[in-house]
């Protein structure tokens, strides 16, 4: 059997908040060791779709899902699947940096410890911080607060924290939207490094960012029906989405002629 080239496959994915259909009929395949960007206007369900990939939507009361999300060929929403296991294998970085109010060291070490990490914790902390390109900046202040560093550093700390668990995928929900351009650039460079080892899915508002960092892009938009649900209107290589989009709405959006 050949290796599956797609980490995620969604089949007829519909996400509901109560009776409201927020995301309708998504069928996309996320390729392995690539960066996939989800772009689109506000309120079209980008983050909702992203959170469906590691079952974080379940923290919102009254959400449910129709359809399938296959992760390595296994449906994440089958009864036998434990969401804790899902989130352990599929890490997440949030829009606002949210380090724990603990030391930098503890921020990285905590999750590994609760998952029963047996090896040398100091080494794990160092290698995670190195992968997140933060080690040189914080190696002397490992035991001071994770909240005492700058916003960009905090976000990289959150990435290091996610890496320390050794996930297979990292989901990023507008990871640079709260950061200045320099910190944003650092995060983007970091993503290029990380994609050697991890599959990355990123939601972004910033089309230049999607064009710069991603290999594939999913264009989402409200489907225009009475339900006001969002859906993926086009999914292709980033290059193609930004230069020769097939959908007129995509073209309008990426060229700034939207609305």
């Amino acid at each position: 059997m050949t290796e599956i080239n797609y980490v995620f496959e969604t089949h007829g994915l519909n996400i509901f908040y109560g009776n409201f259909l927020a995301v309708a009929d998504v069928n996309i395949n996320i390729p392995r060791h690539k960066i996939t960007a989800i772009i689109g206007p506000s309120g079209c369900g980008k983050s909702t779709l992203l959170r469906a990939f590691n079952r974080m939507n379940e923290l919102v009361p009254d959400t449910h899902i129709h359809g399938e999300v296959l992760f390595e060929g296994q449906n994440l929403y089958e009864k036998s699947v434990d969401p804790v296991e899902v989130r352990y294998r599929i890490g997440m970085v949030f829009q606002k940096p949210n380090p724990f109010p603990k030391s930098i060291y503890e921020n990285v070490a905590w999750a590994a410890r609760i998952h029963g990490h047996k090896g040398n914790m100091d080494e794990l902390v160092e290698s995670s911080l190195r992968q997140a390109a933060l080690w040189d900046e914080v190696k002397d202040i490992l035991h001071s607060s994770g909240l005492a560093i700058s916003g960009g550093q905090q976000q990289r700390l959150c990435i290091a924290r996610a890496i320390a668990v050794k996930p297979e995928v990292i989901l990023m929900d507008e990871p640079a939207s709260a950061l200045d351009p320099i910190a944003t650039l650092k995060i983007e460079e970091l993503m290029q490094e990380l994609k050697q080892k991890y599959t990355i899915v990123i939601v972004t508002h910033n089309m230049q960012q999607a064009a710069r960092v991603s290999d594939h892009t999913a264009m989402m938009m409200l489907n225009g029906g009475a339900t006001r649900s969002g859906t993926v209107i086009e999914f292709d290589e980033t290059n193609k989405i930004f230069t020769r989009p097939t959908d007129k709405r995509t073209e309008d959006y990426v060229t700034g002629r939207f609305g």
Binding site: L59, F94, K96, P99, F100, I114, A162
Partner: peptide, 27 residues
Amino acid sequence: VPQSLRKASYGLGATRWQTVWSHVLPN
């Protein structure tokens, strides 16, 4: 206790109990 702390904890694959014990209660 900010919801973002709970999200961070769950996002790392912590159980509800681990989230409550390590993050919610201390804060």
